[in-house]
Amino acid sequence: MTDTRRGRTIAVLAGLIAALGVACIVATSFGAVQVAPGEVVKAISRALRGLTLTADQAVVVDLRMPRVVVAALVGACLAGAGVLYQALFRNALADPYILGVSSGAGLGASLALVFTGMGVISLVIVPAAAFAGATITIVVVAAIATRRGVMDTLSLLLAGVAVSYSLSAVTSFVLVVRREQMSRIVFWMMGGLQTSSWGQAAMVGGMLAVGLCVPALFSRELNIVLLGDSRAGELGVDVERFKRVILVAASLMVSAAVSVSGLIGFVGLMTPHMARLVLGPDHRLLLPASVLSGAIVMVLADLVARVALAPVEIPVGIITALAGGPVFVWLLVRARRGRL
């Protein structure tokens, strides 16, 4: 990387981190009880120093902060997974939702929820089951789309959508059979963050960290595979190993997101795509920038979900779909060149 490029990378990432910080503080200050942004900052700093909190400050730290943080982490996970899938499949339309990975994780998580309930144990079992569901799904979808070693873009998307529908049907069936759990799980599945806790934040954060560090070490490979598998091999990339690593990492992030917030579409599709249009295809910048953008988008979407029709909450998945659909269409029309 030349110095100007490194300077740009640092500037872009610093700007995104600052924007994320601002978005989190603003989002935290909104709610049934308005808390001034300055008060939010004060509450956080008191909590960090272990001092006693006022009632308002306690609301901020114990109720609102975890929700905002979980939203940010979920957005980061979805966008991170989206970047990885898009690079791996050389397809700007790949995203966890379209590929059926979210549905796979959703089925895994539903089964776990049905059989274990919502206790502390669910913080381990639900994501583990979601991870298993996500991994199996992406392997199956990729296998369906591959013929004689060549993965066709259209087949991939069709296989993803088909598998996604089948898995959703199975999930619905499970819910009907276990009717007493249904409303709780449906509520979760629609993409809500109401039940967020610091425990969930820690779980998602941990999975995000693992799911992101590994691909970060492979950022050069993420670039090179855009030249095609065979060229990547000629340039020294062990393509098969790379694919396994990336698929597992992406599945990990998707399952983390799905475990706490159900199925949320478009963040994993839209955010990396927008970041790529603005910043170019170099994953050394694109990966962290997309992750940060995903976090920002999700924090803002959850803010809208909470305050738009307060006191009624809109599931955040509806907000992302409402906002993401048109934006994506606009991007498609604008970017006719089919770049990746």
Partner: peptide, 14 residues
């Protein structure tokens, strides 16, 4: 893809 020519050649160093 929109890599610059130099980025493209740099991939040879991988």
């Amino acid at each position: 893809f929109a890599f610059t020519a130099r980025q493209f050649v740099e991939m040879g160093r991988h």
